[in-house]
Amino acid sequence: MPHLAEIREIIDESPDTRTFRLMFKDAGTAESFDFKAGQFAEYSAFGDGESTFCIASSPTRKDLIECSFKVYGKVTQSLQRLNVGDTIGIRGPYGNWFPLDELKGKNLLFIAGGIGLAPVRCVIENVLDKREDYKNVSIVYGARSVSDLIYKQEIREWKSRTDVSVIVTVDPGGETPGWDGEVGFVPAVIEKSAPTSENTAVILCGPPVMIKFTMPVLTNLGFKDEDVYTTLENRMKCGLGKCGRCNIGNVYVCKDGPVFTYAQIKKLPQEF
């Protein structure tokens, strides 16, 4: 049974990506809904079905649950038609999470592309709320064009802090006349900034091509596959390890994932 939640605020992040800030209708649920950075939920637009999105807000900021979604098909179009005050359903939280406790005392390098910033943002905010537990924090975020960048408000906040380094880049040709960030693909930007791999964990989310071209760069910089965390997105329905569609070999992404290290991913049958 999904929990009902009210849309309190809608933020248009980019022409095709929208964020909902959601409040559970039942006070008890709002209190007890506990999740960790990296987990996902099933969001219902009643009448059209459910869609899987990560929980984009941080567990350290529990007043409103947030999700950001890119408008594609049936369910996401239906969600897009909803207004502030309307009701949606939430089932979850499901799946595993980023092992933030194990990463204490390390440098963290966040790399995100496009909508991939949604799961990463949750971790970033969680880390910033416990800033003293971690060493250097750097963020590299890229999108196709300036208008495709999501979380512009949050990025401004991160940039205003002195204890975080933020690089934002757009693909060549995606810049606007006033653009003050980098221009270039994410892997190239990382290569140029050459972050240290010493005692550093990477949290990497984005489109498969970006991951494919970023990995060799990271390897050259001395990062080990075990230290690179990413998420897999397989089509899901139940989120409960039953409906049978999210598996890669005997790994069920909805239960054993969505968070994996690159070393784990390499060992899976290459079918995702």
């Binding site: 009448g47 039953k242 569609r245």
Partner: peptide, 16 residues
């Protein structure tokens, strides 16, 4: 075999 789908089915404008 046990794979399944979850879908919404409206049977009127307001119910389903």
């Amino acid at each position: 075999c046990h794979c399944f789908d979850l879908v919404d089915e409206d049977y009127s404008y307001s119910e389903g």
